[in-house]
Design a protein around this nucleic acid. Structure first.
Lengths: 210, 210, 210, 210
DNA sequence: TATGAATGAGCTTTCATTCAT
DNA sequence: GATGAATGAAAGCTCATTCAT
């Protein structure tokens, strides 16, 4: 029985350290984070960190990779199945994005770290992009293209730049990073307004009363 | 004559230090930047920095403030005069935003620093927001409201969240921060697609052939 | 059968560790040697070393003792039987010394360790001296004394300081330690020149053609 | 006046640190020496050491170089002027060597460091050899060759290996390193016996009564 | 016997900051 | 104004040693 507990703890050590590292790196940034604080937060000593991770850089990279994994998996699951009209798809798609980008503090903070440390860890940015950014954009692009082919939507220029369609969501993420809780946003309304803009634009539509 | 040169140099010292600080802080982040490197880049010694700035924090804050000033001034100039249809306004407005947000590396890198150090310098974020973010948003919001009142545009939900309308531009900025030159974007086309989406949305407009 | 192999391996463990320790200590010196590297070289884990040896110091001391033993035994064997003229003895004696001091890298490297760590392990130096240095010197001294009594050699002052007679050999050892293979020496010729000097000195002998 | 004192101290700092480093390195060896102890001995703080020397390795190398310099200079002075018979030369020459090699603890301890750290600092060994070992050997060789040409001494094989002639002196140095003060040697008598052996060898000379 | 996870003291090195000149 | 020598408090990293299994 005691074995079980010890073994389980042992197996969980790296994960616990990674979680602690995430929190410290997010709070202080890469350079200002002290391994000693990470250790304390994980309930181990400095030496233990070096038993599992070669360097601070390695810990950081592994942390970003590992803490992004759940998001990637959820994303893949979402991308797998989706049908319905393009209109419905856009709403569902943006809904999912908001769940990840705006409501998941994990994802948001990893975004902060990637922006902050893009110069130091360009490969990490690219890796994250390949697993997360590119698939999301590409999937959106394809579905919109199909929708345009089927005449459901205009073949607008933004179909080539899915970033434009997702932009307001990423923006919200950045705003939340900048202001923490000092400038709260009604995400629900923001989301609805975003969907509305993407689908209808600002100009009056025929028969619509401004 | 020599005195004149020296005097002018002296007067420029603080500015040179701030410029050097900007470059170093951008390259390495706040914590990882060494004052010694800033000094070397500015062509002075560490001690000189302390003659002009009290601490590293103070240097950072002053630098962000000072290097943002030209942008603020340009912005105020722009916000001052603008007439024409809402349609024209939106295009001109976004055009200006792109000049600042996408083409001015200075602004972009300050954004990076603000995102990265938002926890350490929340007051600096707020200050920057008051001088730059809020006025831009508020101005846009008012003009759009007027346009809606005049019936030029729909009274869409996004009128309450100008961030949504500007979102794709901010997004581009973030993308450029993440990938430097590894993923170049055709800003001209991106901009046009952005304007098109904001004005027309994705759904087919009456009489429009997809 | 497998047990036999395992049992034999087990019995050899300490020896393998000592051998590995020798190589690492020689390469890096006492303080810079990591027990982990010793373990890796011996094909065991760090813990295993502590099963056989109490501390790093203990491992070092035991290693020097154990790796010196074959030399001591060979030496005792040599010292046991020797007759012939003093002239013959000197040549044979020096020949043996060269085999040990100049050709046996083991001995040489132990000498390096003793010199390097003389301050930290004085007792080890003394122990080695008692088993190796003193007997060699004393034996030489006695035989030379006998030779002098018999009139075979001069009763020169160097009879009281056998170190002088052996000096060039020890010197060669030190030179080899300093230059590894960067300054190769023709040991055969060096040896002959050494014997010649010891027996004849530099001054011309009667009837000898310079 | 106060300036003078401060300036003098400033100029002496590096030298004081070097001297302190010498003592610590000699006592503990390269790896086991703590920069903190060097600093304390020099009366400065750790940081100051790094103001003058880039790394511990650099401090070590500089120290060996700098502390060897006086010896090199003395040596060059000695090698400059010498005449008289070869017999006289050998005595004077060895006399000088003993002064350096046996009586100068500085030189001896540097020899210990070079032997101990030959693997880590081979270039330093070679450098020291070029400035100290080779010139001494070469000078001796030339003078002996001349002596042999003039018929003053035998053209013995050891003329090609001056190390053999100096060997007993180097040996004494090593012995002193090994035993510190635990085995005192009468250097005067040792020296005389050495000179005697080099000049006359062990075999009886004609007309000499053993 | 042997392992390997874990420790913690201690190491080299860094760097913001000070201050006499 | 400006310098640069000096500080000292960390920070990242190492490693001999321990101990439950």
């Amino acid at each position: 029985m005691a074995e079980g507990v010890r073994a389980r703890r042992k197996a969980e050590r790296p994960g616990e350290i990674l979680q602690a590292a995430f929190e410290e790196f997010v709070d202080r940034g890469y350079a200002a984070t002290r391994l000693e604080d990470v250790a304390a937060r994980a309930g181990v000593t400095k030496g233990t960190i070096y038993f599992y991770f070669e360097t601070k850089e390695n810990l950081f990279v592994t942390m970003v990779r590992e803490l992004s994994r759940p998001i990637h998996e959820e994303m893949e699951g979402f991308l797998a199945d989706h049908n319905g009209t393009t209109r419905e798809f856009v709403r569902a798609y943006l809904g999912f994005i908001y769940k990840v980008i705006a409501e998941d503090a994990h994802f948001r903070e990893i975004l902060r770290l990637l922006i902050a440390e893009a110069h130091r860890f360009p490969a990490l940015v690219d890796e994250h992009d390949e697993r997360c950014g590119t698939p999301i954009m590409e999937h959106l692009r394809q579905r919109l293209e199909e929708g345009a082919n089927r005449g459901e939507i205009r073949s607008a220029g933004s179909l080539d730049y899915p970033q434009i369609i997702l932009g307001p969501a990423l923006s919200l993420s950045v705003i939340m990073l900048l202001f923490s809780d000092r400038k709260p946003v009604d995400v629900e309304r923001y989301f609805e307004a975003h969907v509305d803009l993407v689908l209808n634009g600002l100009l009056p539509r025929n028969g619509e009363v401004s």
